[in-house]
Design a protein around this nucleic acid. Structure first.
Lengths: 226, 226
DNA sequence: ATCTGTGAAAGCATTCACAGCC
DNA sequence: GGCTGTGAATGCTTTCACAGAT
C-alpha cells in the first residue's frame, strides 16, 4: 500500500533546476535595467527551448501576458516565491574540516532581496575543534545539535564529514528534526521520505565529464536553436 | 539537416551518474574483501531498483553470470573502463581565487588504480597572481594556456573564475583545444557540441533544497524497498 | 501581429515479466 | 532454484501545434 499517491501534480525535478536558472537570468536582466522579457529570451539564455520555459512556468501558474511576454520584476518575484527564497533559511554545518570551514567562510549566502541563508551553527565531534570560533560562531559537539535546531528553528544542514561518518551525521541531523540535507559526502544517504537531500559532488562531476569527453557523440543529440 | 542522428544507442545521462555510484559501491565492497555481488545488493546500496542496475549495465555489455551475480573485481574494472577512469586525465584550473586555490590543494585526485587526474597547470589573468606557486605549480597567464594544452595534452579544465568572466574563460579553454569543462560558475556556458560541460554549483543545490523542503510531497513519489 | 498557455503527440527512461543460463 | 539479460509495457518529460489574449 501507499503506492505512488499522485498528490496533486508531479513536477519534474529537471523543472526545479531550470527554475533556479531562470531566476538567475531574471535577476541579471533586472540588474541591467531590462523591464520585459519573453520565453524566447529566457530560453536562449538558459539554452533550452521556449516550449520548455513556458511549460515549466505553467506548472505553477500564469505569469505572462499574451502578445507581450513577461514583466521581469514580477516573474522574478514569482520564481523567488515558488522556490521559497523569499524567506530566511537557517542553516547548520556538520563537519568542520577543510570543506566545512570553507563553507563557513563563504560570503555569498545573502543577496539583497533574492535569498537569505543564515549560518546558525557549526558542529563536529573532534574535541580539538569544539570550542574554536569560526566566522563568529563557536563550534559545538554534535550532541548539542538537537537543542540548537529546536531553539533556533534550523531548516537545513550541510553535511561535510568524511564519507564513513556521513550516514551517522545524517541520522543525527534527522533526529534533531532537520528536513533538508545538502550532502557533500560521496555516498547515497538513507533518509525517510519526509527529508530532502541534494547531492554536491565535484569528483562525480569530473568522472561524468571523463565519460562524455570519451563519448562525444552521446552529447551531440542536440540541435541549433533558431 | 543534422537532426538528432541517433549515432548508435543513446544512453540516459542519469545512467552515467548511476554508473559512477555503482563504481564507488564496488570499490568499497572490494576494500571490504567481498568477491561477489548482485544487482539486488548494488540496488540497495545505490537506492535504485535492481531492474535499473541491470538495465544500466546492459547498455554496455554483459558482465554477470546468471544464477551467480557479478564478480566485484571484474565489474569494478569494467565500470572503470567504461567511465574512462583507467587512464590518466590531465587537468588545468582557470581562475585562482579562493575556490581555484582550494581545488589546487585538494588531495583526492588519485586513488590507487581507480582514477588518476593530474593537475598540470594553473591560470589567471590577475598580474598579482601570475608567478605565484601553488601546490608546486606556477600560475600562468591565460594567454599561455594554448601552448600548455598542446604540449601537455590537457584533457579538461576547471572553470573557477567570477561569473561575469566565465564565458570568456570557457572560450579560451575551447580555443586552446580542451574538450571538457567542469564549470563552477553559476551560468550556462555556450560551447560547441564537441565540448562537454558538467556543472558544479552548491548554491543551486541549496535553492533546490529549499523548494523540496517546502514541497515535501513532491519527493514522496517513492516507495518502501522491501 | 505577437507571444503566452496548454491539450495532444512524440520521444525517453524506467519498470516489468520472463526467457535464458548457471 | 537463483539471478542475469532484455524485449515489451508503462509512465514520465519534452516537443509540438494551435487556441486564446492583447
Amino acid at each position: 500500500m501507499a503506492q505512488t499517491q499522485k498528490t496533486e501534480l508531479s513536477i519534474p525535478t529537471a523543472t526545479i533546476s531550470r527554475l533556479v536558472t531562470y531566476l538567475r537570468i531574471l535577476t541579471n536582466l533586472e540588474k541591467s535595467g531590462v523591464n520585459r522579457t519573453s520565453s524566447d529570451q529566457l530560453a536562449e539564455e538558459a539554452q533550452v527551448s521556449a516550449f520548455q520555459v513556458r511549460k515549466d512556468l505553467a506548472y505553477f501558474g500564469r505569469f505572462g501576458t499574451r502578445g507581450m511576454g513577461y514583466t521581469v520584476l514580477t516573474l522574478r518575484r514569482e520564481l523567488q516565491r515558488i522556490l521559497g527564497l523569499n524567506r530566511h533559511w537557517n542553516v547548520v554545518i556538520i563537519g568542520m574540516g577543510r570543506l566545512g570551514q570553507a563553507l563557513a567562510d563563504y560570503p555569498g549566502y545573502k543577496e539583497n532581496n533574492l535569498y537569505d541563508f543564515n549560518l546558525k551553527g557549526l558542529f563536529d565531534i573532534d574535541p580539538a575543534k569544539i570550542g574554536m570560533t569560526m566566522h563568529g560562531i563557536t563550534v559545538s559537539h554534535v550532541n548539542d545539535l538537537e537543542q540548537l535546531v529546536r531553539e533556533q528553528n534550523i531548516d537545513m544542514g550541510f553535511l561535510t564529514v568524511p564519507v564513513e561518518k556521513a550516514q551517522d551525521a545524517a541520522d543525527a541531523l534527522i533526529k534533531a528534526g532537520i528536513k533538508g540535507i545538502l550532502n557533500f559526502a560521496p555516498t547515497v544517504l538513507e533518509v525517510g521520505e519526509d527529508v530532502a537531500v541534494e547531492q554536491v559532488d565535484f569528483m562525480a562531476g569530473m568522472k561524468r565529464l571523463a565519460f562524455y569527453i570519451l563519448n562525444p557523440h552521446l552529447k551531440a543529440l542536440k540541435e541549433d536553436e533558431e
